[in-house]
Simulated scan of single mutants.
Amino acid sequence: MKKLDVVALGELLIDFTPAGLSSAGMRLFEQNPGGAPANMLTAVSRSGLKTAFIGKIGADMHGDFLRSVLDSVPIDTSGLITDPSVFTTLAFVSLSITGERNFSFARKPGADTRLSIDEINKDILSDTKVFHVGSLSLTDEPSRSATFEAVKLAKEAGAIISYDPNYREPLWDSVDKAMEMMRLMSEFADIMKISDEETSLLTPYKEPLEAGKYLVERGRKLVVVTLGEKGALVVSKAGYVEVPGFKSNVVDTTGAGDSFWGGLLARFLSENMDLDNITSKQMYDIARFGNAVASLCVEKRGGIVSIPSLDETLERLKQ
């Protein structure tokens, strides 16, 4: 019996989110803990499941802060490496009037890109039901090789491989390189999420349903295309379902997709669903749960700190 429900490898960083102006008229930023894999794990943990994070931070105030945040969620940090030779990765966020965000990264290099396979706790990989990765760990070496090797080890140990590309153009040398690496990783995935803005990066198709079907035909067991406020499209060999979103008072969309995916995985695992034989009804159920989590997440600033508790999610599901 595996002890962990979901383990994720990838970036752990500070999102400096706009927080008004100082008395001198200077822009203020709020130190919000984040990083897509950590956001996702928080949603899983707050839904009552056991999680662990694998990654690297710097030996600095931001790294110390991030470790303490994960510990408090709680997320197991025994696989989180502190490296005094690099600085913790930072992201500065700008928000539009509708809460949509753009990022400027301080990552040249950031600690998250310096994780090597020798630093990864292999016991964690063999003791999880689901192993999750994104694509930000694929932008640079040594984290790129470490990520691919970790996925192979987890898959050999029987884990379901979860993948969310989470494309961030400024972090790649070129769009072509991003497409190459993101598509290569998708070949290892059992279950994956892409946004409606990423379909043509991961497949030959722009249209969400065609993209989802393409990925399923290539061996993915479950594909979810997120559609922003419209909800999500879920595709498997059982067919497809469209799942509408919940109404939200949007403040900040940071972590929306991550929290959705964490909620979906938590529901999938909590209900002991069979990925090979998942039904349309189950597909709808897990995506609706994910939508509820995301709809609450966007009503506050930041990633990890805005992700709701299980009770809050269950209350939203009553709508």
Rank of each mutant, 00 (worst) to 15 (best):
M1C: 12
V6R: 01
E11F: 04
A24L: 10
F29P: 02
E30M: 15
N32R: 14
G35N: 08
A36E: 02
P37G: 14
A38N: 03
A43C: 09
V44G: 05
R46T: 07
K50E: 14
I54G: 01
G58Q: 01
G58I: 07
A59K: 15
D60C: 15
V73Y: 02
P74L: 14
I81P: 02
T82R: 15
T88K: 05
F92M: 08
R101V: 15
N102Y: 12
F103V: 08
S104Y: 12
R107L: 12
P109D: 05
A111W: 03
D112T: 11
R114D: 01
V130R: 02
G134S: 10
L136N: 14
D140Q: 13
D140C: 14
S143I: 06
F148R: 14
E149W: 09
V151H: 03
V151Q: 03
A154H: 03
K155D: 03
E156T: 15
A159F: 03
A159R: 01
I161S: 03
R168Y: 08
R168D: 06
D173E: 10
K177N: 07
M179G: 06
S186P: 01
A189G: 10
I191E: 02
T203G: 09
Y205R: 09
A211W: 00
K213S: 13
E217A: 09
R220T: 08
L222V: 10
V223D: 02
T226Y: 04
K230E: 10
V234K: 00
S236A: 07
Y240C: 11
Y240D: 15
G245T: 05
K247C: 12
S248L: 06
S248Y: 03
V251Y: 02
V251D: 04
S259Q: 05
G262V: 05
A266Q: 04
M273E: 06
L275N: 06
M283C: 12
N291L: 11
A292F: 02
C297V: 15
V298D: 04
V298A: 09
G302I: 02
G302F: 00
L314I: 11
L314G: 13
E315W: 04
